[in-house]
Design a protein around this nucleic acid. Sequence first.
RNA 1: GGAGAGAUGGCCGAGUGGUCGAAGGCGCGCGCCUGCUAAGCGUGUAUACGGGUAACACUGUAUCGAGGGUUCGAAUCCCUCUCUCUCCGCCA
Length: 424
Amino acid sequence: MLDVQLFRHEPQRVRDGLASVGADPVLVDTVLELDQRRRAALQGLETARAERTRCSKEIGGLPAEQRKAAGASVRALGEEIAKLEVTADEAERRLRDVMLEIPNLPHPTVPVGPDDSANVVLREEGQRPALGFEPKPHWEIGAALGIIDFERGVKVSGSRFYVLFGAGARLQRALISFMLDLHTREHGYVEVYPPAMVKEHCLYGTGNLPKFADNLYRDAEEDYFWVPTAEVPVTNLYRDEILENAALPIRHVAYSPCFRREKMSAGRDVRGIKRGHQFDKVELVKFVRPEDSDRELEGLLADAEDVCRRLELPWRIVQMCTGDLSFVASIKFDIEVWAPGCGEWLEVSSCSNFRDFQARRAQIRFRRDREHRPELVHTLNGSGLALPRVLIALLENHQQADGSVRVPAALRPYVGADVIGPPA
RNA sequence: GGAGAGAUGGCCGAGUGGUCGAAGGCGCGCGCCUGCUAAGCGUGUAUACGGGUAACACUGUAUCGAGGGUUCGAAUCCCUCUCUCUCCGCCA
């Protein structure tokens, strides 16, 4: 959520920003009008309440037998207040509803563009493998090795589900452990194991609601949502808190399963394990002082890239243009790994700086010192990394002519083998 | 799932209809004193949204788990919900 003050003081800047991310600049005028209405309603209400308080105190000082009569004369005021409350609440709610649907403003350094065609590939890192044979897609490799079973996944849970067997399951578990260890031991993150189900308000905090309900699984009866990413529970860890200045920055790494309905991408990426309803992910989440957030984003990106490097995967960094930013991000860099088998770049992480957008929704603040009022923190996050796609890249980049898959050195202690071969 | 107890400021803990944003203690900030490793004295110490200011100051309203009700007036009375704790049942 954006700061209403920004609308009041720099409306043109907000209009320009909204236009650049494809939102309607007229929203600024809507907000300004609703804000005006809200303030007017509030002033009327507060005046009336102040008057009532004065009267009530007077009555309190009266002898008991006079109170009843005096009270009756104030009754009308109470009824008026009730009406003004309804008006003020209504104004407040309408403003809030609009504000909740307004996207974040882009960081000034974000390249301007209408859609993903204007995204910028900043650099390419790592070596593409010189395989010397026609690379197979992971669904062939996985099936041949007996480590990915698509048919049984469908049998048990329907389309977009698969089952990992044997070395495949172990490989995934190894990746999770490897990533958690790397980020906790070498990058300074504190590990968190969060709930995979959250209450509705958490999703408002991170910005998944109200706009993106159709990508979420929910249990309406119990008001539970399955998390689409660990970002949701981890960001909400500090909701409604005022953190100590010394506690910042907070850097968390969390492994969690993620659940997405994928309604919007029906029919897309149905082959393989690239896009399922359930997948695993190791997520990095930061809570930082505003002045540190630009630098912290660089660090976040570097920490996520380090996973690619150690897994000996070729990757590239793509900066999202204004038109391709997510609803909540003010700046975003994707990490894409090359998958030679299916011949595409796979998004394995989106590293974003949300600035105070989520913090305002979730009311995550910190106190710089006693003299200052609490300030909103900046939140950032990015995957470090998303498991199934790393698995794809691993199988496809490290496949060998005989059908086996080489395990990169960094992963060997976790897998307990140098090579994943066909079933005996 | 059944029965009971509870939810007050950073923490502990008073407060059962009025002058209570809320005693007292702890913690913490600032000042003084003292001078020795600790204490004493004074003073201050929630948040949000309005008004106000160049910015402070100042000022209004709200907030005692959440929502609703009674009342001129609710931390205090009534209802609903949430959460926590104890016991029973069930269970990985």
